[in-house]
């Protein structure tokens, strides 16, 4: 690979991939908490509508959704999105739906006595959620969110298909320019692995902080992927099943 390709395509590509991951993760987190909390609502219509959202966006493929937003939105609804934002929207909506299952599961896992105690102390529902339930649920969410974040990072490679100039797009251009496929794709795979590794480390840090806040120590775990028990694996893969991969 020549210096020019590095400077003009690959380095900006890395920045685009980081931005995409960051924006989609923020959007997906907002969606996940919004939908996840609404799914515990007392009104059946709210539960039904949010359930429909989750099933639709978990059921379809992120790539198809991206193409749909990119090609059908401008024609059907006369809304032309900048490719970058169409990509963030598609990734955020899809991974938000997966994430909402994590949020719902973690909220349900908080001991019922905690909720009852908050009711007995006449906390309002909002106070109950913010002061009692969420602080205990969030540390539980971080490990599955970590897996989902890696999936999201991997899914950002899809945006090259709607011509957003991310790392994968830069790789395609470099391959066309130089024909050194082996070298280029090996570098790109290595780059993604390094990014995934950094994200995992950051999430571990976050987990340790969050657990320390409620007086727990984080479990020991492997280099990158967290080992799961048989039960968790089943629960997790059925709960949060995977679009761009798994967990």
């Amino acid at each position: 690979m020549t210096a020019g390709l590095w400077e003009h395509w690959l380095l900006p590509g890395i920045w685009i991939t980081i931005q995409l991951t960051l924006y989609s993760a923020l959007f997906a987190t907002a969606v996940a908490f919004g939908i996840g909390i609404l799914r515990t609502s007392r009104l059946w219509i709210v539960r039904f509508l949010t359930g429909c959202y989750v099933e639709i966006f978990r059921g379809t493929s992120a790539l198809v959704l991206m193409f749909w937003l990119f090609f059908v939105m401008p024609l059907g609804f006369e809304m032309q999105l900048v490719p970058m934002w169409a990509a963030v929207l598609a990734l955020g909506l899809t991974y938000g739906a997966y994430g909402s299952e994590i949020v719902r599961g973690a909220l349900a896992a908080v001991a019922p006595a905690q909720r009852e105690a908050a009711i007995a102390l006449s906390f309002t529902p909002a106070q109950r959620m913010r002061r009692v339930i969420l602080p205990q649920a969030i540390p539980e969410m971080i490990p599955p969110f970590n897996n989902l974040l890696i999936e999201l990072l991997k899914a950002t490679a899809l945006v090259s298909a709607v011509s957003v100039a991310d790392i994968t797009f830069a790789a395609q251009l470099s391959r066309l320019a130089t024909g050194e496929s082996l070298e280029i794709y090996s570098i790109i795979l290595g780059l993604y692995f390094v990014l995934a590794f950094i994200l995992t480390r950051l999430m571990r840090l976050l987990e340790r902080k969050a657990k320390a806040n409620i007086g727990q120590a984080p479990p020991k775990s492997g280099l990158v992927t967290r080992k799961l028990s048989a039960q968790q694996e089943t629960a997790q893969s059925s709960g949060t099943v995977v679009s761009g991969g798994a967990q």
């Binding site: 991997k154 994968t168 993604y192 992927t225």
Partner: peptide, 11 residues
């Protein structure tokens, strides 16, 4: 597991 399927496909 930690690298994108799409890039592996292109590889």
């Amino acid at each position: 597991r930690n690298t994108p399927l799409l890039v592996q496909l292109f590889f």
